[in-house]
Design a protein around this nucleic acid. Structure first.
Lengths: 225, 225
DNA sequence: AAAAGGACGTTGTTTTTACAACAAGTTTGA
DNA sequence: TCAAACTTGTTGTAAAAACAACGTCCTTTT
């Protein structure tokens, strides 16, 4: 288990908790590392949402079954990723999704109640865990809201402009680099890659912006007077 | 202020807190009710994210300015709605949005730090507030994730099927009612209303489903053996 | 009960996208 | 260093969506 410490230390749930507290924390949380082979279920839809998981090694898919029985992969999680926290914190009775190992995988499972309940030992880190959990949920919230602002635009051009404008605002200047390559950006904005490429060059031709690889420059910036 | 109690009591942040504790809670949180006239700013972009607001009366718009200086309304909030909690909990330095009264409005402002910090009086409700805040953030998270699953589909038909399938799964049967009229559903799925109407009747003609007003029935359900 | 407004479906036209296929340029690694 | 794999841009075509305009039915208002 020792070798997972460095991975867990990078997980935002344990942010600002000293490594020296780790052993105590994991035992107080009754955390268990479990191993799964490819195809094994970590969580099963309809299970109660009592635990949160952290991918210590390997990868899992979060999958959902639709009304017709088709299995849809919602997302793939890898080392350091946290899952199940939203369902636990929201107090849902039954998980609406399953989590399945896509390869040999190690998962740290912790009981949700123990993380957000101050224990009888008055461990110092419980407060920190709660604070971290709030931050995790809130940050994800902001990221999801942002994404929705982009993907709910009707046209590829509008999606691009909304996204690029947000990036420019964040960078506080019209020139900036984005963390996606074209394929990833297209997936993020939920559009076709080649259509997006075409739209980008059209916009460049029209003088709205210039770009080269991941570096973009928006033109006609706001009057900053 | 008395007359706001019944409104605040319905706010999920104060869920499971007895009305008799309200006065103590509001003073402990240093909560202040402030009034704004149409057009007045409650929060201004770039302000530090130190407070959360609850709409006690009236309505506010959450607005954002894009790179070119265009003002975009992100959402309108009305009585009982909470705002600013994600930015506060995520610990963002500066608000990326402004909040503006769209009519005469009363807002209850509470200091974020006080809500999630156990006070020296050891008030019983702090634990409850934290728990409620976790639940609020997590529930919103789930709702946003769900919506993203719908709006990231490429075609109107796929969006509809994803949405209706989720509704059917939730109802645990192929027949169910939805909480939207056509216009609201179209906005939620980020598609054109008339195009969506057309798509719905096409799907009905093809035998995929039947509907009447808000009541839908999906056909060819999963084999539940 | 009549009028007005709203919700929903329908249709035709224009715009936009998805998709497929490919070329040029770049990166990787054997 | 050379080939393979990947990334990006380009183009044409078919499919889909947006948009606008309108008819019908239903609800609300007066």
């Amino acid at each position: 288990m020792d070798r997972f410490f460095s991975i867990l230390a990078t997980c935002p749930l344990f942010f600002n908790i000293g490594e020296e507290d780790f052993a105590a924390l994991l035992s107080c949380l009754n955390a268990k590392t479990r191993h799964y082979e490819r195809g094994e279920m970590v969580f099963r839809a309809e299970d109660p949402a009592t635990h949160v998981g952290i991918v210590a090694a390997g990868a899992v898919d979060v999958v959902q079954e639709d009304f017709w029985g088709n299995r849809v992969i919602l997302t793939r999680l890898t080392q350091g990723d946290l899952f199940g926290e939203a369902f636990s914190c929201a107090g849902v009775e039954k998980l609406p999704v399953s989590v399945m190992a896509v390869e040999d995988t190690a998962i740290l499972l912790v009981d949700y109640r123990r993380t957000i309940t101050t224990c009888s030992n008055a461990c110092a880190f419980h407060t920190r865990l709660i604070f971290n959990m709030l931050r995790i949920l809130a940050s994800k919230n902001i990221a999801l809201t942002r994404k929705i602002e982009f993907v709910t635009r009707r046209t590829t051009r509008e999606k691009l402009l909304a996204y690029l404008s947000a990036q420019a605002n964040e960078a506080r200047r019209g020139e900036f680099t984005i963390p996606f390559d074209r394929q990833a950006l297209a997936e993020y904005l939920a559009v076709d890659r080649s259509a997006m490429s075409a739209e980008l060059s059209r916009m460049q031709r029209e003088g709205l912006l210039t770009y080269e690889k991941n570096r973009f420059a928006l033109k006609a910036p706001r009057d900053s007077s």
